[in-house]
Computed example of a mutant assay.
Amino acid sequence: MAKRSIIIDTDPGQDDAIAIALAVASPDELEILGLSIVAGNVPLKRTVDNGLKVLELCGRPDIPVHAGADRPLLEALVTAEHVHGETGLNGVDLPDPAMPVADKHAVDFLIDTIMEHPEKSITICALGPLTNIAVALAREPRIGPRLDQIVLMGGAMAEGGNITPSAEFNIYVDPQAAALVFRSGIPLVVLPLDVTHKAPTTPERIARFAALDNRCGPAYAGLLDFAKRFDEEKYGSVGGPLHDPMTVAWLLRPDIFKGRHVNVEIETSSPLTRGMTVVDWWDVTDRLPNALFIREVDDEAFFDLLVSRFASLP
């Protein structure tokens, strides 16, 4: 597998932290150019701090962290402390970060980095609301054709929503930004709730992280243990879905996923279905496919990948 250069656009909660760590633990396949941070799971100040904390936990304070949008394009910010806790990283007590925030705004970082690198050499892993990416595309449209692809966690089809009956959180928070990205013509890979709900963090799986002989394994076990409690209470499940790491896992092991190229449109105007991803799975419209929409995963292979890579972390 050729090495990919990636930018991780993220609003760090527990599952974002797992995704970042998986990318850090895969240096042979992935070069992380930086984190671009957006408000989402918690407000921007906390998501920035969480990005710094995660990189320090993983032993990579050299990766720059850029603060970005603190609110959606048009909507009031909706956050998810009810899921992730007040800090966004409840479940482990990490020290205040020592590494500084990069001077450049995340949008400027996205534009400059994409324009400075060869065409089709950068992939964006989008783990939160798509505000930073949408603003960057609006400010500098030339970056769109230069991107290799955007691999994003967001949306849902048969699973319904997790913040409203019809909408997944990341898309709901900034539907206008999502609509711009989905209409951009950039190749998209979408990891929706339909696939993330098929890989629950059971106690046995969390125990595999806790048993790792490093500092990251037990720390991430604590994050996973906290994160699952909301979904267990809400759905009556054993464990909870592990959303954002599937974006990085797809880059590393696309063979363990299955999906279909389809058209996906974003509802922006209806108060009842704001943020809904309207997925033309059965090709019943004349709209052209704009995304590879993933719905199946080998969950055992997914967790085997996570644990084996996390064993290499500090």
Score class of each variant (00 low, 15 high):
P192S: 01
V181L: 12
E168G: 00
I186P: 06
S184D: 06
T196S: 14
F169L: 04
N170I: 00
A158W: 15
P175R: 11
G154Y: 05
T196V: 15
V181P: 04
I163A: 01
P165M: 09
N170E: 11
S184T: 10
N170G: 03
L191C: 10
A199Y: 10
H197E: 10
G185R: 11
I186H: 03
G161R: 05
N170A: 11
V195H: 05
F182Y: 15
S166P: 01
P165L: 07
A167E: 07
V181T: 07
N170Q: 15
S166N: 12
T196I: 14
D194N: 07
P165N: 08
I163V: 15
V195I: 13
G160E: 09
F169V: 00
L188K: 11
T201I: 07
I186G: 03
T196K: 07
G161L: 02
L180I: 14
V190K: 07
G160C: 08
K198I: 05
S184C: 09
L180C: 08
G154F: 01
P200K: 04
A177T: 12
T201W: 03
T201D: 06
F182R: 10
G161T: 07
A178K: 04
I171D: 00
N170T: 15
S166Y: 15
P165K: 10
A179R: 15
F169S: 07
A178F: 02
Q176P: 10
T202C: 04
P192L: 01
L188W: 10
E159L: 13
N162S: 08
V181S: 02
P200N: 03
A199V: 14
S166L: 13
P192K: 01
P165E: 09
P175H: 09
P165F: 05
T196L: 08
L193A: 11
N170Y: 00
V181E: 04
I171H: 03
D174E: 08
V190E: 04
R183Q: 15
K198F: 01
M157V: 05
D174I: 12
D174M: 07
G155E: 01
G160V: 12
G155A: 02
A167K: 05
G155R: 02
I163Y: 03
L191T: 13
V173T: 13
A179M: 11
M157D: 13
V190F: 06
T196W: 08
D194H: 03
A179G: 09
I171C: 01
P192W: 00
I171V: 15
A167C: 05
V181I: 15
G160T: 12
P192C: 01
Q176G: 11
L193P: 08
M157P: 02
L180G: 06
F169E: 01
V181M: 06
G161I: 06
P192T: 01
R183N: 15
S166D: 11
D194C: 00
S166M: 12
P165V: 10
N162C: 06
A179Q: 14
L188I: 13
V181G: 02
A177Q: 10
I171Y: 02
